[in-house]
Design a protein around this nucleic acid. Sequence first.
DNA 1: GCGACAG
DNA 2: ATCTTGTCGC
Length: 319
Amino acid sequence: MVKKREPFPEIPDLYQMVYELITYIPKGRVSTYGAVAEALGDKTAARAVGKILSENSNPELYPCYKIVYSDGAVGNYRLGGVTEKSRLLSADGIKISDDGIIDLKRYFFGNFVSDKPLARLHEYQDRFMPEIESIGSAIRTVGGVDVSYSGDSKNAVAVYTLFDFKMNKMLDYTIQSDKICFPYIPSYLSFRELPILSKLIEKAELGKKSADVVLVDGNGLIHPRNSGVASMLGAVCGIKTIGVAKSLLCGTAGDDNFIRMNNKVIGKRITKGFKPVFVSAGWKTDLSEAASIVSEMMIRRLPEPLRMAHILSKSLMAN
DNA sequence: GCGACAG
DNA sequence: ATCTTGTCGC
């Protein structure tokens, strides 16, 4: 099994797929957010399905009122709330009990035809193997990349800061804006942010503003399939990366601050008087040097390259 | 019932 | 990450 440098998989248009899938729910039946997510290939995307349906711009064509909670509760509806959603369902002949529950045994439809694109991405992550090794030569510069989103989450600005490692001072930065076409789904962050981030890295390299190693706002090895955005970004761009996350995606922090999953160390919790951050090796770095680089550059909670990238991208997005 | 699965 | 149409398990 080839574990690296496979071509990056095609990123599906989940928005369009969700809208099309729900048109196949027969009249008088309902489905659930989880069932639609399963048709996409991963039930954990249920919440993303909800978010996508909440942005439905054509309720005449796409009957999102037919999607209810997994316990049979009617659930939310942007255009008129639960009252309107219940009215539409009743008009289809669906009985709703006094406590607002639909009998899913009777009305449920889940037999969607789909090629399950998320399952394909999941498999790609399963095959992906991060290269973990020592950085080797001395670090002179460290970069930080972060992405900020517009209110509707359709556009984003990413910033790559270039820092002098020893001085912990910013030397330069690079900006990239882009449309965002993939929703946020836990453990699938790569597919949302890699397009904009890889463009950003390329632009920084062309401008001679790239660093020896790049801190990424997200995880590397701390990931259910050890395939966080930091690792994938490193592999795609051929750069050394380190993951720095503000909350723990998976695994458990021990008293020794190491994060373990299935008895393997996948990262480290770093606490320097602030709320902790969770560091993991991304691509062609290892945990101990990752932790020491991050720790040395922490004046505040986030290491300076990331803190500045965050501040810059947020302020640029505002304008 | 409440909290969790990066951003 | 913004500004909230989920689901499951502890």
